[in-house]
């Protein structure tokens, strides 16, 4: 089996694997045609690489304080300066990528499947199930996200795991709404009737036939939401309810730099840059994904 472009783009694939690989390759080609999405993908890739090799990339320890080097301005030795305990800010940001990734991935893994399940079940069955589930969703949606996350963290106690749980609890209603709306557009369509006539169970229809059609809009939405998740996590960190010191969480770093913002601007600004750049990366990539995954915009 040779992995050539011709094999991938074959109009008449011989096996399931070939047809799947071909589809993935076509999506990849479509993504390549969108320069902004490439920029987003590169930023995310950079984030992944930095997170993977953080201990080797960081020039100093992220937690060891050195009071003789307090609040040094950016220089050749400390590219982003040092904070109020003399810790190298660049090293802290590099180690902070792990925390950011941990939060973002866990929230996505918890909230996206939950929202997808609730939305598709509500849309597929309709009736009172729909009313109950959507009522629940509305309750969650009606609170501002950060406020509700705050309330949950306050109840669960501060800490990074609880921050993740709180953000996940506040993030799923959006996905449920989207999945339900999508499900409603085809719940009465003939291909669903056809599979029902063939004796498929409700579970099989929802997981095998309804969910795959809601998947792309959910993936796009999750990617776009990543920026919001990072900001919420940073917000919780800033308020002292997320990652606890000395963990180098970006929001908490901004918070501790607040006291010196007029004289030592870099302490708060550098982690702010990191948040902006990573959020922007997810936004751009999500936008590009929407363009290629949205079935309405996809041509033959």
């Amino acid at each position: 089996m040779m992995l050539t472009t011709q094999w991938l783009l074959d109009e008449n694939p011989q096996t399931r694997a070939q047809s799947r690989a071909g589809q993935a390759y076509r999506l990849f080609l479509a993504l390549l045609r969108n320069p902004l999405a490439i920029v987003g993908a590169l930023i995310i890739l950079l984030l992944l690489v930095v997170a993977a090799f953080a201990p080797w990339l960081a020039p100093y320890s992220p937690t060891e304080s050195n009071l003789s080097m307090r609040l040094m301005a950016p220089s050749a030795a400390h590219w982003m300066g040092t904070d109020e305990l003399g810790r190298d800010i660049l090293s802290r940001i590099i180690h902070g990528t792990r925390i950011t990734l941990f939060i973002v991935l866990l929230v996505a893994v918890i909230s996206a499947p939950l929202g997808l399940l609730i939305g598709t079940v509500a849309g597929y069955f309709g009736g009172w199930i729909d009313k109950v589930l959507m009522g629940l969703t509305d309750i969650f949606l009606s609170f501002p996200r950060l406020i509700m996350a705050l309330a949950f963290v306050a109840a669960l106690g501060p800490g990074i795991e609880n921050a993740v749980i709180a953000i996940a609890i506040t993030a799923w209603p959006v996905y449920a709404r989207i999945a339900r709306a999508e499900t409603l557009t085809f719940r009465n369509s003939e291909f669903i009737s056809a599979i029902r006539m063939q004796g498929a169970s409700h579970g099989r229809i929802i997981f095998g036939h309804v969910m795959p059609l809601c998947m792309s809009s959910t993936i796009v939405r999750v990617t776009l939401d990543m920026a919001g998740i990072i900001l919420t996590a940073a917000g919780l960190g800033f308020l002292g309810l997320g990652a606890q010191p000395p963990l180098p969480e970006w929001g908490a770093m901004i918070s501790s730099g607040r006291a010196y913002i007029l004289d030592q601007w870099w302490v708060a600004t550098m982690p702010g840059f990191a948040i902006v750049i990573v959020s922007l990366g997810f936004c751009l990539f999500g936008d590009g994904l929407r363009d290629i995954l949205d079935p309405r915009s996809r041509t033959k």
Binding site: S19, S189, S193, L213
Partner: peptide, 24 residues
């Protein structure tokens, strides 16, 4: 079993011929 009026609406848009036929 039933054959539907609209062949554009009666096949799952993301399932190949093989998947559609092996599902039952």
């Amino acid at each position: 079993q039933m054959v539907f009026q609209d062949p554009f609406g009666s096949l799952h848009p993301r399932k190949s011929v093989d998947a559609t036929l092996s599902e039952p």
